[in-house]
Amino acid sequence: MSAAIIVPEAADVLGTSVSAPIRRQRFGTLVRVELRKMTNTRSGRVLLIIIVALAAAVLGWKVAHANDWPVTFENYNMATSLSVGFVLPVIGLPAMTSEWSQRTALTTFTLSPRRLRVFVAKLIAALALSAAVLVVTIAMTLGATALGAAVSGRPASYDGLSGDIRATIVTTLAQVLMAASFGALISMTAVAVGAFIAAPTVWASAAPSLLGRSSRWLDIFATYDRLFSQQATSHWPQSLTSAAVWIVLPMTVGLARNVRREVK
């Protein structure tokens, strides 16, 4: 596998000195580095391609069958969200787990020993990248809506456009945070993804028989539904409680462990 290596003189390695001033690592640098790390590996790129390809496939199908449904942004956005919405939240999860699963922790945390800053930078990078991907998929949805109108010969409706977009972004970013919190808590990527998908579903089916009506306080799906249907403020104490249990709690426990964990 290895190519022939031309071995340079040792002096070549040490011959160049660096004059840039030594400053405390800035948080912005950490965020930029983490953003870059999410997009410069093959697996990271594949995930982004899958998300965009999925949106293209679903929207293409909508356009091809434009006569079967009303040509509204709301309707097309629902299709995008139901498909992309399953994959996109996972965008930030590998960033939380990969330092341990890829053993890069040894390098990352010797270059940046204040680990909490690194993990917060990861969260912000995950939110930023998700927002950027959402901008792309929402633009694709807008384009598909217009295309659907052209294909079907019916006028497109953009009623409630800004509300739909806002709801889509808020709901998706909440799910991104939840996936990241599962990644922080469980540092094995596959197990964390599995838990992120399965745990709330299992809970949603089991909780009502265990807790009765009280289970709604811990129903994160109902919270996402309210966010997405733009009734974010209805039942807000229940929404906050479920978010605290499904997002804030695993995130806090996970980060605390990651910061203290011994790097081997």
């Binding site: 790390k37 590996t41 093959r42 697996s43 990969s98 890829q102 890069t104 922790a105 040894l106 390098t107």
Partner: peptide
């Protein structure tokens, strides 16, 4: 500390 501590998927 460990030459293997690099992401295999990165150049």
């Amino acid at each position: 500390l460990d030459a293997a501590a690099q992401h295999a998927g990165r150049t």
